[in-house]
Simulated assay, not measured.
Amino acid sequence: MRIPAVAGTFYPSDPTVLRSQISQCFREGPGEPCGCSGRRAVSAVLSPHAGYLCSGTCAAYSFRSIAEDGLPEAYIVIGPDHYGVPYESVMCGEEYVTPFGRCEVHEDIAMRLRELIPDDVRAHTREHSVEVEVPFIQYIDPKAKIVPIIMGRQSMRSAERLAQSVKAACSGHDVVIIASSDLVHYVPKPYADEMDSMFMDAVASGDVSSVYRLVEKERLSVCGYGPIAVAMMLSGGRIEVLDRTDSFESIGYDRNSVVGYGSAVMYKS
């Protein structure tokens, strides 16, 4: 099993405190999920992956959209690599452990996917971009099953290859993609406001090429544009921005060096 790397730092290690903090993220943001439509129109969401005090309220918008739309069979959680894994993309076929307990891997999807991309739990050992999403998943869906994936390279071609692999592995299954990403990093707030707004507009346009053009032209430090691109490629429908904020707005720390956060929901075509 994959044990937590950032429990006690990015989020509480005590399950009671953790549940209380996630509930507070919902209450201070979109509100707790209210009912379930059962429509299953949501194909993917963008959710940030910083510490919950910084980005948890923003993340709550994405998870409320899933809970109210209808819980899927599995969650494909795709995060960027922050530590230099030696893979273009790599899955983890072992269950993730959080303070809420074990979050099982969807075995059929994982079995198919490991024929298309490497499966190496060691590559996931330190990485927080997937881990931080899992307690939120367990909060809205205590019986959730996941397939965790880290992108070591985020070029458009890498995103296309991973999207093709995920599509093939998930054929016949009802899934939601969770694209884990923060927005620009450690920049003055006015610059973050401008660039994050432009980036989220590009995401909302549904045009993957425009996302890559913006990232390259402005040299944006958005850490998970690759996972976002994969989610966009696998969705094909309307994309709605739910929330955009930053670390200064959430914790009031250092207006000259903020990290941006955004949440969005992507619908089936």
Rank of each mutant, 00 (worst) to 15 (best):
A44C: 10
D14K: 00
I140D: 08
R2P: 07
V258N: 04
R255C: 14
E104A: 13
S65P: 09
R114W: 13
V211E: 05
S23I: 07
I66R: 01
T245D: 15
P33M: 02
S205F: 04
I109K: 03
G93F: 12
K143D: 14
V230L: 11
P135R: 04
R255S: 15
M198S: 14
A163Y: 03
S205C: 02
C58R: 03
Y61L: 06
S171E: 15
V166C: 00
P227C: 04
I177T: 11
E94I: 07
P48F: 01
P80Y: 00
S43L: 10
S158E: 14
Y139G: 07
P99Y: 08
V258D: 14
D201E: 09
H106W: 14
L183P: 11
S269G: 13
V222I: 15
K217I: 06
L234M: 15
L18W: 03
A144D: 09
G31V: 04
D193V: 12
S221C: 08
S247C: 09
C58S: 09
S165P: 10
I146V: 14
Y261I: 06
T125Q: 12
V203S: 05
D108T: 10
G237P: 10
V241L: 05
L214W: 05
K217E: 15
L71D: 07
P118Y: 01
L242I: 05
P142Q: 00
H173W: 10
L18G: 01
Q21P: 03
G252F: 03
I109S: 08
I146F: 08
F248C: 07
A74Y: 09
A179G: 13
K167S: 15
M232A: 08
T57Q: 06
V121D: 11
Y52R: 02
A74S: 10
P48A: 00
S257Y: 08
E68H: 03
I228E: 10
E73L: 02
Y191F: 15
I117G: 00
V166W: 01
Y191V: 14
V166F: 02
S62I: 06
S209G: 12
A110G: 08
P99W: 11
V187G: 13
S263P: 05
A264L: 10
I150L: 13
S13A: 11
D174E: 09
Y96F: 11
I3E: 14
Y52P: 13
K145M: 15
V17A: 09
